[in-house]
Design a protein around this nucleic acid. Structure first.
Length: 551
DNA sequence: ACTGAATGGCTCC
DNA sequence: TGGAGCCCCTTCAG
């Protein structure tokens, strides 16, 4: 028997027709395994169970408690497979046996095993990504980028560098010379519809509908069973932006699910699940030119979507006026924002340089914001206390500081309280949605932590620390654990584990549910968010696709 | 079918 | 303080 099956096609080799059904079953299992992990040792006839190396995903193992389901394919169950030793008598006898074996095997294949093998193959072949969303009109949206090949490789003389062409509004530039969008309002012209076409009227209707709150079972058990009922189907995945998703949000409307996502090149996509207009209900805009690091619909004015970009601009999409208005603007390095006041007219905005600005939207332009330098020169996330609005948490490099917005100084503002225990950089810190009695942090030291902040001004103890793989590497957005806004005690986080999943935990670190789907969830969903009132959960991936689980 | 490149971002020195 | 080293994940173009 061939010792090494390099490829999955090996499964249906003709030679297997001569094996006994038991052999065949084992061979199928083996070859499917080798397709999963091609470098694994092959079996030798004399030693049917070579080093039973429990090589599950190391990442999984690190996660330990986070596992819901161990991967069965590594449970080696073929150890007792009998090896048929030659032992055939005369040739005619052999021929008879051979024919009989072939007949049996064909019977066997047509019964369970072939079905099983094709099932396994289906699992191994990566499903084609969803073709919904920005696919059909891709040609219209397509940016024509010059081929990038160095002059040296082309054996050409170096050219004098020339300045990029003068910027014109809404023109897409080469990624390497692109400039910021011009200041002032930008028209809300979708990139994926015909030029001059108006926004679909449904969009404004949805954005301005009366907000309803569904009655939810407050018990953890009831919540858990609600999560288990949530499903994802083919039409709940769509390409909403062109590139990797950096931020996403649910619109609070309930009659349909409306979402926004921001990508690496400053695009903002809106998606009404279930269609309604072209591209399966997707509208694509470009209010920024660099990653859209943070976005949120205004709670006070649901026709407003605020989006912030590394390019230094913070804009407000206004569906009524069909424009992207300027809210705040610096040269570059905006990182995070949150609403400060209940009416969403004031904001706290953080940048890469350790500065926090209080922005009042009622006074246009940059003149009325005040800039405060916090001590560590890094701000990755700001989040305002849901009740005591003067307090906001700042994820600094290795510590979360809680500041009082009334007591900020030009430099080195004193924190009201600090949360310690992080050994690497902190990606996010959020107050629990209803009381603010907890702060949820995500840290690159592979831990999600929950602090007790019921007494903001005194020492806030660490309540729970949950191990979770945060090593997303270069090409994925970082993970962030985010609260379910419908509850005080549960949050969702993406995962590196396979099969791909989103996980919901409670504040005690107990896994409530893992959202998985072999067909429709096949990539890492770094950006996650729960709907504010409905049982719906979104996850955004590195190719600009949003995935929705809902009931 | 396969390969290489991708302008992110943190940590360490 | 700034640059090298690293993470090892996904996607797309060639």
């Amino acid at each position: 028997m061939a010792t090494r099956r390099s490829k999955r096609n090996a499964v249906v080799e003709v030679e297997k027709l001569e094996m006994t059904p038991v052999d065949l079953e084992a061979a199928v299992r083996r070859s499917s395994r080798s397709a999963l992990a091609p470098k694994r040792l092959s079996y030798s006839p004399g030693n049917p169970t070579p080093q039973k190396k429990k090589k599950t995903n190391t990442v999984e193992d690190k996660n330990g408690q986070n596992n819901v389901k161990k991967e069965e394919e590594d449970e080696d169950d073929s150890s007792d497979v009998e090896q048929t030793s030659g032992g055939y008598g005369g040739l005619s006898q052999y021929e008879l046996e051979r024919l009989e074996n072939i007949r049996k095997n064909q019977e066997f294949l047509t019964s369970i095993n072939l079905l099983q093998a094709t099932e396994e193959l289906k699992q191994l072949t990566r499903p084609k990504p969803s073709q919904r969303g920005l696919m059909r009109s891709q040609a219209a949206v397509k940016e024509v980028l010059p081929a990038r090949k160095s002059l040296r490789l082309q054996n050409k003389e170096a050219e004098d560098l020339t300045l990029p062409p003068e910027p014109r509004a809404n023109l897409v530039y080469d990624q390497f010379t692109r400039l910021k969008k011009p200041p002032g309002s930008l028209p809300m012209d979708p990139l994926n519809t015909e030029e001059g076409s108006k926004l679909p009227s449904q969009l404004l209707e949805l954005c301005s509908e009366d907000l309803k709150e569904e009655k939810m079972d407050p018990s953890l058990k009831g919540y858990q069973s609600a999560l288990k009922k949530m499903r994802i189907t083919e039409d709940q995945v769509a390409k909403v932006v062109k590139d990797r998703i950096f931020s996403a949000a649910f619109h609070p409307c309930t009659s349909s699910l409306l979402m926004a996502a921001g990508d690496k090149w400053g695009k903002v996509g809106l998606w009404k699940m279930g269609g309604g207009w072209d591209d399966d209900g997707v509208l694509l805009f470009e209010p920024h030119t660099r990653p859209v690091g943070c976005m949120a619909f205004s709670r006070a004015h649901p026709t407003h979507l605020l989006s912030l970009s590394y390019d230094g601009s913070l804009r407000c999409m206004d569906v009524e006026k069909a424009v992207f208005d300027d809210v705040y603007d610096i040269d570059d390095g905006l990182k995070t924002f949150d609403f400060l006041s209940h009416d969403c007219s004031t904001l706290v905005v953080g940048n890469w340089y350790g500065e926090v600005a209080i922005v009042d939207r009622r006074t246009p332009g940059n003149s009325h914001e005040s800039l405060h330098s916090l001590d560590p020169k890094i701000v990755r996330c700001v989040n305002v206390h849901p009740l005591q609005k003067q307090y906001f948490a700042v994820a600094e490099s290795h510590v979360v500081s809680i500041y009082d917005s009334r007591c900020l100084k030009k430099t080195k503002s004193q924190a009201v309280s600090q949360l310690y225990g992080h050994s690497k950089s902190i990606s996010s810190a959020y107050f629990s949605p209803h009381t603010g009695n907890r702060v949820l942090t995500t840290c690159l030291d592979d831990h999600i932590r929950i602090y007790d902040t019921s007494e903001v001004t005194s020492k806030c103890p660490l309540m729970k620390s949950i191990r979770h793989d945060m090593q997303t590497g270069r090409w994925l957005s970082k993970l962030s654990a985010v609260w379910d806004p419908k509850r005080e005690d549960c949050f969702v986080v993406g995962s590196m584990g396979r099969p791909r999943r989103m996980q919901v935990f409670n504040e005690n670190g107990q896994l409530q549910h893992s959202f998985m789907d072999a067909e429709n969830l096949t990539t890492v969903l770094s950006v996650t968010a729960f709907h504010p009132t409905r049982n719906a959960l979104l996850g955004g991936n590195a190719s600009g696709r949003l995935h929705v689980f809902s009931d």
